[in-house]
Design a protein around this nucleic acid. Structure first.
Lengths: 150, 150
DNA sequence: GATATAAACTTGCATAATACAAGTATTAAA
DNA sequence: TTTAATACTTGTATTATGCAAGTTTATATC
């Protein structure tokens, strides 16, 4: 139990560093880690609203609103009013946003390949399935506060 | 590869939320998440210096220095000069710090039990070993920037 | 159809977190 | 005995954060 928490703590931190490094390698100080997360998540989701992304990143909506403004100023994100409900703003990446996003992705994959090259096919599969299994059981367990993330 | 990143992204975020919730449940607004991480890490390591903890949490040393000051003001942490080298300050938890730390631990374990109760003994072991394996291969791979964390 | 309620954001504001530059104090190296 | 390096601290400016209170649009109630 404690062993698990400790390992997860370290893994999380390392994963964070990989993300940070990928972001820095790509864009230096032009883009913060949080902003790169927003690009990542907007790219990942389908026609997401502000709420969708903010809650996926568990960010306060007001903080998020301002970060989106920053990203629009940098011409990385677009905000389109929803046709059915004008309160909702759909987020999407601009061409430049897509470019940056895939550049970060590339940087990340370079690191990831180094990590995975240490492992056998079987180990890789086991790890990926383990992480997915863990996510699933977290979804089941925490109805109250963690269920929102999929 | 992308599947891995996506699952890890979600897992990291959920783990972060569990940590945050444990921290909030324990101490409300008395303690920030970062501060709880410091307590956790000081408790985990043996006679750690400022540098040790700052780098384990990949925090800037100046930011860390100020957070330590906050925690000393809250009477949760002690700073003792190293006998052999007076530049180095060894960190340790005060009694109150230990108390808070184990209270957060308790909160965290309640969540964790809910998660693990969804899983079989075998699944649990596989998950834990997978995460450890992943940590090990990350250590091997990233000599440059991630190797520091153990 | 008018009014009340709620949802999806935005902005004001005060506080906390961050990191660079430049400092002090102590130890190690030349 | 200088010189350099390490371990930390403080000054300062910038950014991030989140609550309160706002606007605008949609939904529910009568």
């Amino acid at each position: 139990m404690n062993q698990f928490r400790e390992s997860m703590f370290i893994l999380s931190r390392k994963f964070g560093i990989l993300n940070e490094q990928s972001c820095v390698n790509c864009c230096g100080k032009e883009l913060s880690l949080v902003q790169s997360h927003i690009l990542y998540e907007v790219n990942r989701q389908n026609q997401p609203s502000m709420q969708d992304i903010a809650s996926a990143l568990s960010m306060d909506i007001t903080t998020f609103s301002r970060q989106v403004k920053n990203l629009i100023d940098k011409n990385l994100i677009k905000k389109t009013p929803d046709l059915k409900d004008n309160r909702i703003h759909i987020l999407s990446l601009t061409d430049k946003g897509k470019e940056i996003q895939s550049k970060i992705d590339l940087e990340f994959n370079i690191y990831l390949e180094q990590v995975f090259s240490q492992l056998s096919e079987f180990e890789r599969d086991t790890i990926i399935r383990s992480i997915e299994l863990l996510n699933i059981s977290m979804n089941k367990a925490e109805v109250c506060c963690v269920a929102a993330l999929k």
